[in-house]
């Protein structure tokens, strides 16, 4: 799980252009969206859907259904661990 979390953070930093942020800076339990945490938005959510597709073979239809899954790096990693192929 630790290595998946690490890898996921690297994907997020690269694909979402999170410049000046390192994997260590991202709190795995902090919310990804909204004012606190990483402050991601709806376009980032669509990009995360693409990360799931590209790197883990997971297809999610829309970001609304994905709300609890997309809460934090930890919840996202948990979902990937269960559903990856």
């Amino acid at each position: 799980m630790e290595s998946l979390i690490r890898e996921l953070k690297e994907h997020l930093i690269r694909e979402l252009n999170l410049e000046d942020i390192t994997a260590e800076d991202i709190d795995s339990k902090a919310p990804l969206f909204g004012e606190e945490g990483l402050g991601l938005d709806s376009i980032d959510a669509l990009e995360i859907i693409l990360i799931l597709e590209k790197h883990y073979g997971i297809k999610l239809q829309n970001s609304a259904e994905a709300k609890p899954v997309f809460y934090s790096v930890e919840t996202l990693a948990g979902y990937i661990a269960k559903n990856r192929r």
Partner: peptide
């Protein structure tokens, strides 16, 4: 080879 990026399209 890559999926179309919403972050680019916008």
């Amino acid at each position: 080879t890559e999926p179309v990026s919403p972050a680019v399209f916008v």
